[in-house]
Simulated assay, not measured.
Amino acid sequence: MKVLVIGGNGRVGSLLVNKLASQHQVLSGSRNPKAENNFDNIEQVYIDLLSDVDTIAESMNGVDAIYFVSGSRGKNLLQIDLHGAIKSMQASEKAGVKRYIMLSSVFALQPERWNESFLSNLTDYNIAKHYADLYLTTQTKLNYTILQPGALKEEAGTGKIETNVTNPGSNSIANVVDTLVSILQNNSTIGKVILMHDGNTPIAEALDQIK
């Protein structure tokens, strides 16, 4: 399988690319591809989310699945986190790529939760993620999965999570990456919005429990 990771040079993306490369041919998409990082199963490709849909779609030829894990870290929420994400969805459909996995944010589709203390300083970010997620779920025909973790931490992964989230805890980046990898392997996740935080259930089992 050939997999494109949009945002392949980021905190999550770089780990995700390396994990996926043990099983798949991986395209690591970013505005700053580094040719010296090309390996047998990893190819660095140029993708600019500020460009038009047709240009983005050209980078998707022959791709079987797409991950969107890009983000502006609050610097360009409208053009990258919102409109850039939507253009990548439109480009996926134009290129005929059906499988699309989005990394989002906890409760992005539940604005009634945004005034809670752990989200109260992230309103603009959550608005961007909300409308990107909403577009994916209602305006596309993609075989999507949306993963919505809470705060990301630079901690060792445990391989165990929880998806029955009411009061979100923290997430090791490694666990988020392993969950993203497992989502691609599990077709029952198609059409699902999955909340997560670190927990006590093995990742594959936690995904199987989602209704």
Rank of each mutant, 00 (worst) to 15 (best):
V3Y: 10
V3H: 02
L4A: 12
I6G: 09
G7E: 11
G13V: 08
G13E: 00
S14G: 00
L15D: 10
L16W: 05
V17T: 05
K19H: 03
A21E: 00
A21P: 10
S22A: 03
Q23S: 14
H24Y: 09
L27N: 11
L27E: 02
G29L: 10
G29D: 00
S30F: 13
S30I: 11
R31V: 01
E36T: 13
N37K: 15
N38I: 02
F39E: 13
F39A: 12
D40T: 15
V45D: 06
Y46Q: 15
D48I: 00
D48L: 02
S51F: 00
T55D: 09
E58F: 07
S59K: 14
S59Q: 15
D64G: 07
V69W: 11
G71E: 05
R73V: 14
L77M: 12
L78F: 13
Q79W: 01
L82H: 13
L82Q: 04
G84Q: 05
S88M: 06
M89S: 01
Q90P: 05
Q90I: 11
A91P: 03
A91S: 10
A95F: 01
G96R: 05
V97A: 07
R99N: 13
Y100T: 02
Y100M: 11
M102P: 07
L103T: 02
S104Y: 04
S105Y: 14
S105G: 13
V106K: 04
F107K: 12
E112G: 08
W114T: 08
N115E: 11
D124K: 15
Y125D: 03
I127L: 14
A128I: 02
H130Y: 06
H130K: 00
Y131C: 01
L134M: 13
Y135H: 11
L136D: 08
L136M: 11
T138W: 05
Q139E: 04
I146S: 06
L147F: 00
G150T: 03
K153I: 14
E154N: 13
I161V: 00
E162I: 14
N164E: 15
T166I: 15
P168S: 06
N171T: 05
I173N: 11
A174T: 10
T179G: 01
S182T: 03
L184R: 02
L184S: 02
L184F: 08
N187G: 00
N187P: 10
N187A: 09
S188A: 12
S188P: 11
T189L: 10
I190D: 01
I190R: 12
V193K: 08
I194T: 04
L195F: 15
D198M: 05
D198C: 08
G199A: 10
N200H: 14
T201L: 03
T201V: 13
T201S: 06
P202W: 10
P202A: 05
I203Y: 08
I203E: 03
A204W: 07
L207V: 09
I210W: 03
